[in-house]
């Protein structure tokens, strides 16, 4: 029974975690811990929300704990230092990879240029099958605040894509 739940949600959980950690090995380890935690806490799930909403709450707390432990920079991407780090990573990435990337890869790369909160709100909304109310429950925010956050996150994503993937974005507009 629980194996079915793992099968059903593993890709959602793994994607969310990966967008926090930006490292597949860490993401896999954390995702595994999340399912173990979920299993141990199953008695606490009272069915007041969707199972996925409850599970993503565990994802969020686990990822934030991981970020705290790793002492990663969790501040917004607008922070100069963080932005310089990403600029460097991006320039290295662009120099030695093929020019044209798949749209999927481009979106994923662009999402990784956002702050953890922005990544999460976008992933939950588009890939996590969560409504604004559900995301509010997961992030401990009001649905209206989530709406504003989502709007701003998409705005920032658009800016990052235009800045770092101008060529691909232009192609998209031409299509």
């Amino acid at each position: 029974m629980f194996a079915q739940l793992v099968e059903r949600y593993q890709r959602y959980v793994f994607t969310l975690v990966l967008r926090f950690t930006d490292n597949r090995e860490d993401a896999e380890e954390i995702s595994q811990d999340i399912f173990v935690k979920a299993f141990r806490s199953l008695a606490d799930f009272r069915g007041e929300s969707k199972f996925s909403t409850w599970l993503y709450t565990i994802v969020r707390t686990s990822c934030l704990t991981f970020l705290r432990k790793k002492k990663l920079d969790t501040v917004s991407i607008d922070n100069d230092k963080a932005f310089i780090q990403l600029e460097n990573r991006e320039s290295g990435f662009r120099a030695d990879t093929v020019e044209k990337k798949s749209r999927h890869a481009m979106v994923n790369e662009a999402i990784l240029l956002l702050s953890p909160d922005d990544r999460q709100v976008i992933t939950l909304f588009y890939k996590g099958e969560q409504s604004l109310e559900d995301i509010g429950k997961i992030m401990g925010l009001e649905p209206n605040t989530v709406k504003v956050k989502l709007h701003r996150a998409r705005q920032r994503l658009k800016e990052r894509m235009e800045k770092h993937f101008s060529h691909e974005v232009q192609e998209l507009h031409d299509d």
């Binding site: 793992v6 099968e7 896999e28 173990v36 749209r103 588009y126 998209l172």
Partner: peptide, 25 residues
């Protein structure tokens, strides 16, 4: 932009993921 985000694919963990989780559980 919306269609692009909507169409983006989910990442998949390793093939052994479910087995690892069940062994741990």
């Amino acid at each position: 932009a919306h269609q692009l985000l909507d169409a983006s694919e989910l990442e998949a963990p390793s093939m052994r993921f479910t087995k690892n989780v069940m062994e741990e559980i």
